[in-house]
Design a protein around this nucleic acid. Sequence first.
RNA 1: GCUCCCGUGGUGAAAUGGAUAUCACGACAGGCUUCGGACCUGUUGUUGGGGGUUCGAAUCCCUCCGGGAGCACCA
Length: 559
Amino acid sequence: MNEREIILREITNIVTELGVVNVPIVLERPGDMSHGDWASPVALSIASRLGKNPREIADHIAELILKKNISYIASVSVADPGFVNIFLTKDFFETSLRRALEEEENLGGTSIFDGKTVLVEYTQPNPFKPFHIGHLMSNSIGEAITRMFEYAGAKVVRANYQGDVGLHVAKALWGMLHKGVMPDDISGIGEAYAYGHEMYETDTIAQQEIVNLNKKIYERDPSILEMYTKGREATLAAFEKFYSILGTQFDLYFFESEVWELGMTLVTEGLEKRIFERSEGAIIFPGERYGLHTRVFVTKDGVPTYETKELGLAILKTQRSTFDLSITVTAVEQEQYFSVVFKALELLRPEYKGVFTHIHHGMMVVPSGKMSSRKGNIITGEELLLDMISRAKEKVSDRGVENVEIIAQEVAVGAIKYMVLKQGLGRNIVFDKEKSLSFEGDSGPYVQYTLTRARSVLEKALSEKITAVVRINGNPTVLERMIDRFTEKIVEALENREPSVVTQYLVALSSEFNAWYAQQKIVDVQNPESSHNVAVTRAVMAVLSRGLYMLGIPTPLKM
RNA sequence: GCUCCCGUGGUGAAAUGGAUAUCACGACAGGCUUCGGACCUGUUGUUGGGGGUUCGAAUCCCUCCGGGAGCACCA
């Protein structure tokens, strides 16, 4: 039992002793740390039942808590209109700091997913199409979620699913044929896709040609096979470069070309079981029966749609890996699509109910609205990354550190990932090149910078031979009390599938550390408290470095 | 039309139903003989409208207004 559970249990006992039952006992982190480490508004909720004034009850409860002699509690106070505020002891925080220094590498690790395997599918760029900033978003979120699960004891499988067949490929190939683009010309392929897409929408002859081409791709027709194979490889190789810069190493790759046949067998089976239906020549899943909407799984030309491939993908995942939970990370535009597909899967394979889940995040939009190749307002991942790296390089160069290239890249990746991970998943990010990415304040580089500063302090401590010794003199500071909350934040982030919980915590801790740093000289042979201050610095460093790792944000040594 | 998500200072965001709504950017005024100024201190300014539930609402319910996403052969 941790301190919270013990305090909660005692308060519950006290409330029962007061003769009140069936009331939820709330013990929470007060919004303002000056109110205490834990707070309970329980007096407010039972006041009306007891017919007494909440303040009076709170005073009484505070007195009873003190009488319990709980070893973690230093003091209990009452605030209007009837909050009971609890401060924990110096001993408690000293123990917590010592643990931070000892655990370092595994700091904040929990065991809530011990023995479980979680497969996370994310990024999902499509060969023959540009790697755009939406893919950066999915990658950042997926990688953070994966690492958090890893930290909670789970075995994780990183999976990527890439669409190497489908209408978008036909559009690109058609464009390449008409514009004479060579299959190793990445940017040419991107333009060819945009051209093919536009012609598909506006020209009926082109549309028919593209549909025919699409069939040929599925049939691996020799007339286009070489162009297809080379183009596929060239774009996939370009994606690999991004994964490496972003810090993701996938364990499994899935391609649409290898799942559609499996999907088709499921659809055929579903047709027999009357889960699917024929309608206007196509095979559909009538989602209305389940409060959802109808989707087409096989077109009237007999071509499987994305929906069918998704079914095949699910089965292929189970063939290549064993897992307790599968999470697919995509943008919100696919939210309802997944509800339908997973419902169909559940009907076909009831044993997978609840195993396949989906996390959706907001979209990267530009000030003029949604990005689309037709509007010509797509920002590619490469553009953004190169742009950020060159800006970071300017700053790094001024500082006379070595390995400018590497550090600029780490800072740029940190800035981009932080931008994605700092806010709730549900929100869109309006991407404005000038404003969105900052190196100051609430930013990735701010946290990275805080870490490098802490590291410098510790280097100096080493040279002055001041070692870390935990000994809190007086009341625990806000900084010391915050360090203790690391694990709790990870668990919260994991339970809510919300990496921003960790991001917010790290920036708040950085801010607190920077303010503390500015107040005094940490390494000071004249100051008897210096050893303790060095210990606090080391603990902060451990938390920041583990926290950033968990978010997938690089931790430069110097910057 | 139906379904889902979102409206918080000038801007971008935070807040398991709890206290005086918290940060950052911007603007303005300050701070380096110090361990790194990508920093710190201070000032400025906010819950779309209207009902309801509750001891207590940015949060839950209803409704209106505004924005985004999805809804049959795209991924």
